[in-house]
């Protein structure tokens, strides 16, 4: 993964782990290379936050839950097998979520953070193990649910340009990984 892709990943992580409008403004400004027009503090970001919460946080029933388990369980629920798969992968990489047990390990923001760590690790060492782990996480996990998530978020009633921006970058990042993976296939 080139450095630009890695930076993108960190920006997307920050977006999906955002707690409030300022966090969204910061993440989106970074995603657009500093070119986002509305100043942080403007109502634009309040509206972004309202949409973000309707889609991903609550308190309303989530329009696009940002949790792998919501897509990979037979019946949508959280803390399912996909959550534990994510947790096991983190553990194998020597990582753990500081909020384990309270925030499901397969929250999109957490997974993007793990992707950053795992991909860096895989490329930084000439060894099979970290590459195999990253490859598994990407192929069997991230690519198995994030496209569904993006689709669901795009079809949702709530929406905002800031969310579209992040979803677009997320999709591009995923495409990039897919192409790269396909390129590697003999």
């Amino acid at each position: 993964m080139d450095p630009e892709q890695r930076t993108r990943l960190a920006q997307l992580r920050d977006f999906f782990l955002a707690r409030r409008a300022q966090d969204l403004a910061r993440a989106c400004t970074a995603l657009s290379g500093g070119r986002t027009a509305p100043e942080p503090g403007s109502t634009y970001w309040d509206h972004a936050e309202f949409a973000f919460n309707k889609l991903f946080v609550g308190p309303v029933a989530l329009q696009a839950p940002p949790y792998a388990s919501a897509y990979l369980s037979t019946e949508s629920r959280l803390m399912g097998e996909a959550t534990l798969t994510a947790r096991k992968i983190y553990e194998m990489a020597g990582l753990t979520s500081p909020l384990q047990g309270s925030l499901p390990d397969d929250h999109l923001g957490v997974e993007l953070d793990a992707a950053l760590g795992l991909s860096t690790m895989a490329e930084g060492l000439d060894a099979e193990a970290p590459r195999a782990l990253w490859d598994y996480f990407l192929q069997a996990h991230l690519l198995a649910w994030i496209p569904q998530f993006i689709d669901k978020a795009r079809r949702a009633e709530a929406g905002h340009p800031a969310v579209d921006l992040a979803l677009g970058h997320l999709e591009t990042w995923l495409d990039h990984q897919t192409i790269k993976e396909e390129g590697m296939t003999p």
């Binding site: 992580r13 983190y90 990489a93 020597g94 990582l95 953070d113 950053l116 760590g117 690790m121």
Partner: peptide, 10 residues
């Protein structure tokens, strides 16, 4: 590792 959220596990 360059993680911003996850921390080294036991």
């Amino acid at each position: 590792m360059p993680c911003g959220f996850l921390v080294p596990g036991k």
